[in-house]
Design a protein around this nucleic acid. Structure first.
Length: 558
DNA sequence: GCCGTTTTCGGCCCGACTGTTTTCAGTCG
């Protein structure tokens, strides 16, 4: 559905339609993409128009998709605008206005003809286009021919940014240095890595940044701004700013775009113009700057908003009304309820090593949840003896007798009930046949009195595979009905449930668990990512099960 | 096409950069 609305927006734009209609369709596409709810069903029930950015017209177009497969206006518009022209928009630096003229004035409708025209220097016959534009288009065509670059996982980006921030802080010319952008908002993947700073000598700091040993390419280098690429392909942006408006700039460069647009639209209604330099009173032209973000938000009548919430999903209204949630923090976790040891073939550290590491992190308990299929023929009992022995030694730290069972294609679990009944903690997960009625299988698993928690629900792998097609609202309702917990899996390429899904789960009344699913000691630190995901889902300490003592959890279990 | 602490009509974020324009449009973030 989102793709249809995006395509419709592209075609309308190329056809010269009014830009705000185009924008409205793009906004609807974003809304549909990030929605955790069954948008099609909501549209059929006349309820989709309650979603922000979706009104009567777009709702009826969603119904058209459900009933006939395609938006009628899209079918019609495709007859007017050649498909190839819409592809032009994917080329960087080639926007709708230029693409339209290339199509209408030169009759070019395919990428191949575009390349030929650029090579034959025909594009410069259009007013406003010159040699540089042709050159740029040829370069863009080459770039798009290459395989699509993948987005960088937060787990890779976050330590990289933090390391650079540290290095810049140590430079004598720098004052304040901060991560910004999507990394600061802790989005699951990022495109580039943003850093902002104040400095006594901006040019010196920028220069230093471009000369760091790991820099393999300098993409841009000015007095206050530079973009470099690291040896491992990460793109870093540094922006050096005056200290008086540090708060304005940090806020601006943290984004998200949606958050900033919403913030500024609301300000405009009150006669204020917000930019990265300050808040300008439109009538008096007075400019108010802010040294901190707290000041800035206060000047606009909001409580400070944690970066993880800045996605234009209701945070401004909540901040205005004093209703922001008190977000869960890493330090709130008392234990980790999903991890593996060498008892699983894919585990890299022994049970003892995992337990010691978790204890060193300050946890009071862990559930050792090795895969059921490695624990047959007496191996589970053998593991339990080892756990008992370790528990005697590590007291008061406690290792729980856990297990991770797979939900088979028929919904059954790969360990008999009488064994599961002996476990302290059972995680049930989809590991295969993701396209075989995943919704029903999850719901069947939840019906089991022994299943405490569903692991990595959609089984997605970032940059590798989409999650299973699951009717989340049904599964969440079943989780509430049966008292089954649902995991936020902290593995860098899982982060499953994702932010919007976790938020919907909590709103439905589901209790969530933040687990690492560690297969080695170092992976226990991924809890930071899971907590970030939980924060992006607006979750409080109370909504996360493993912020409690094990004794309290035992009372909460089904 | 959406939406409402001025509004059911008339607005819709803001600035930097680039190339081509002799004063600004297009694109991007």
């Amino acid at each position: 559905m989102a793709e249809q609305f995006d395509l419709l927006a592209d075609l309308l734009e190329l056809d010269g339609e009014e830009q705000f209609r185009v924008l409205a369709y793009r906004r609807a596409a974003d809304q549909i993409r990030s929605s955790a709810g069954p948008v099609a069903e909501q549209a059929l029930a006349g309820e989709a128009k309650n979603l922000p950015g979706i009104g009567k017209t777009i709702e009826s177009k969603i119904v058209q998709i459900v009933e006939s497969g395609e938006i009628e206006a899209l079918t019609k518009r495709k007859e007017r605008v050649p498909a190839g022209v819409a592809e032009f928009l994917r080329l960087p630096a080639l926007g709708p206005k230029t693409a339209r003229r290339i199509w209408q004035d030169l009759g070019i409708t395919t990428m191949e003809d575009l390349r030929k025209a650029a090579e034959a220097e025909q594009l410069r016959s259009l007013p406003g286009l010159g040699a540089k534009t042709e050159e740029r288009i040829l370069k863009a065509l080459e770039e798009t021919a290459k395989p699509r670059e993948k987005r960088t996982l937060l787990a890779k980006a976050l330590p990289a940014v933090q390391a650079v921030v540290e290095v810049l802080r140590e430079h004598p010319a720098s004052n304040e240095v901060s991560e910004a952008g999507s990394v600061r908002r802790r989005t699951e993947t990022v495109k580039d890595l943003d850093i902002i700073a104040t400095a006594s000598d901006p040019a010196a700091l920028t220069e230093y940044f471009t000369k760091l040993t790991w820099v393999s390419e300098i993409k841009a280098h000015g007095k206050t701004k530079a973009t470099v690429v690291s040896h491992d392909g990460l793109i870093f942006d540094l922006r050096v700013v005056p200290p008086d408006s540090y708060g304005n700039l940090l806020q601006h460069f943290t984004g998200s775009k949606r958050h900033n647009v919403d913030l500024r639209e609301n300000a405009v209604k009150r006669g204020l113009s917000v930019s990265e330099y300050g808040i300008k009173d439109v009538e008096t032209s007075e400019v108010l700057t802010a040294r901190t973000e707290e000041e800035l938000y206060e000047q606009l009548g909001y409580a400070w908003i944690p970066p993880e919430l800045r996605e234009g999903a209701g945070e401004l209204a909540a901040a205005r009304d004093g209703e922001l949630p008190e977000l869960v923090e890493l330090g709130d976790l008392r234990g980790d309820l999903h991890m593996h040891s060498t008892w699983s073939n894919d585990g890299k550290n022994t049970l003892e090593e995992m337990a010691e590491a978790a204890k060193a992190l300050g946890y009071a308990y862990v559930a050792m949840t090795d895969h059921a299929h490695y624990l047959r023929e007496g191996r589970l009992e053998a593991q339990w003896s080892e756990i008992a022995e370790l528990n005697g030694r590590l007291e008061p730290f406690h290792i729980l007798r856990g297990i991770e069972v797979s939900i088979r294609a028929d919904g059954s679990l790969d360990m008999p009930d009488d064994v599961l009944a002996e476990c302290d903690w059972v995680v049930a997960s989809l590991h295969s046949a993701f396209d075989k009625s995943p919704t029903e299988r999850l719901m069947t698993a939840m019906e089991s009195p022994h299943v405490d928690c569903i692991g990595h629900m959609t089984a997605r792998k970032l940059n590798r595979r989409e999650g299973a097609d699951i009717a989340l609202e049904k599964v969440f309702a079943k989780a509430v009905e049966t008292g089954t917990f649902v995991e936020i899996n902290s593995q860098p390429d899982r982060l499953d449930l994702r932010d919007t899904h976790a938020r919907a789960a909590a709103e439905a009344g589901v209790r969530l668990v933040v687990n690492t699913d560690s297969h080695e000691v170092d992976a226990l630190a991924y809890a930071e990512l899971g907590i970030a995901q939980a924060r992006r889902a607006w979750l409080t300490k109370d909504q996360i099960v493993n912020t409690r003592t094990w004794k309290q959890i035992e009372k909460l279990k089904k």
